Amino acid sequence: MNKKYLYMLSAGHLSVDINSGSLPALLPFFVSEYGMDYTSIAGLMFASSFLSSIIQPLFGWLADKGSRQWFMVLGVLMAGLSLGVTGFVTNYWSIFAAVTLMGIGSSIFHPEAARNVNAIAGKKKGQGMSIFSVGGNGGFGLGPLLAVFLVTTFGMKGTAFYAIASLFTAAMIALAAPAIRRESARQLAAVTKKATDNPIPRENDWRAFSRLFLVIVFRSTLFTAISSFLPLFCIQVLGASHAVGSATLSIISIAGVLATLVGGLLADRKGYVRTMRYGACLLVPCLAVIVFTQNIWAVYAMLIPMSFAMQGPYAAFVVLGQSYLAKSLGFASGVTLGLSFSLGGIIVPSLGWYADSYGIAAVMLVILAISICCAAATFLLPEPKKA
């Protein structure tokens, strides 16, 4: 496993996902600077996730047809340049189009990059995917902080940073692409030789993948719901300040970087299915403590365990999807990396309606119930066939 190339791909992952992570923090500035209403803001979030979630498996399917290193370069450029434009135009539909292109850029990057990571990682696929995933998690964690700093320091034109950063990152990946292709081919050749000595057919297990998809639906809903309602629960139910409530997500994101690395190592040693079960089962008591104690100190005590429960299995479920669809790595990556974030954005608005009708405390009980369903669903997952 050549970690140098994994770090480069992780840097590309950071460059792409820092745009998606920055968008929510830019929305209040769109309201104050451009006069957008809440319906318009919701439309931008929809634009960033809905179309990209549909087409990302398509780009994964295309990646499976042959090496397309330029997908990674194009994805980095589209994501960064598109978000960078939003600080220089004021027309809503222009911004809507830019945000849509940002989401498409993310969809183009992820499947091809994850396919290369799978090849380069060799036998240590969990560790390799965790290194790659740290870039994405870091992007989502640092994005809001960076967005606020840029706009408060330089005004809306501070978004130009995203475009400039994408140019440098895309150039790095473009220069390294031939070496990444050679390393991927070398690792795949080694796997092919081993398979020749001990032949095990590479097959797609769609039944197992459909069960994993069920877990992805629950997991994505939990991620988005916790991100949306945990700060509000702390503020409105527990009486915490806005700063204390919002800090919960920052702690989960920062601890998630370490959790992702530890989870990757655990996945290689204990297995991908078992790692997912550990994470899903750990999340249930963490949420139960938060919901039933209704104490802000109890919430903070649960944040780091929650981070490990949520972020630790990240590499495991991506590699597990690739293991189930061994002949369609790009498509599997498109689903696990794409839908795992966007599906929640489609489902969670119904929880918002429920919260409006019955209160934040009631919706937290629903989130707890979803976590129990997610944990139960992981026990339906079969162990992948070993190559």
Rank of each mutant, 00 (worst) to 15 (best):
I120R: 03
I120S: 03
A121T: 07
A121L: 06
A121W: 04
G122W: 02
G122Y: 03
K123T: 03
K123R: 14
K123F: 00
G126E: 06
G128V: 05
G128D: 03
M129P: 11
S130T: 03
S130Q: 04
F132E: 00
F132D: 00
S133P: 09
V134P: 00
G135K: 08
G135E: 04
G136W: 05
N137K: 07
L142D: 00
L145S: 14
L145H: 08
L145K: 07
T152L: 09
T153E: 12
G155C: 08
M156H: 04
M156D: 09
G158Q: 07
T159I: 06
A160D: 08
F161L: 06
F161W: 08
A163S: 13
A163G: 14
I164D: 03
A165R: 01
A165W: 04
A165D: 12
A165I: 04
S166D: 11
S166H: 01
F168Q: 12
F168G: 13
T169C: 09
A170H: 04
A170V: 05
A170R: 05
I173N: 04
I173D: 13
A174G: 12
A176E: 15
A176D: 14
A177W: 00
A177V: 02
P178G: 08
A179Q: 14
A179T: 07
I180G: 10
R182H: 08
R182G: 03
R182Y: 01
S184A: 15
R186Y: 13
A190K: 14
K193E: 14
K194T: 12
I200S: 13
I200Q: 09
I200V: 15
P201D: 06
P201H: 05
R202A: 14
R202V: 07
E203W: 03
E203F: 10
N204I: 02
W206G: 07
R207S: 14
A208V: 04
A208T: 04
S210N: 08
S210C: 11
S210I: 05
R211T: 03
L212R: 09
L212F: 07
L212G: 12
L212A: 07
F213A: 13
F213S: 10
F213Y: 09
L214E: 04
V215M: 10
I216P: 02
I216T: 12
R219W: 13
R219D: 15
T221C: 12
L222P: 05
T224V: 14
T224P: 01
A225F: 05
S227P: 00
S228Y: 07
L230N: 05
P231W: 06
F233C: 04
F233Y: 15
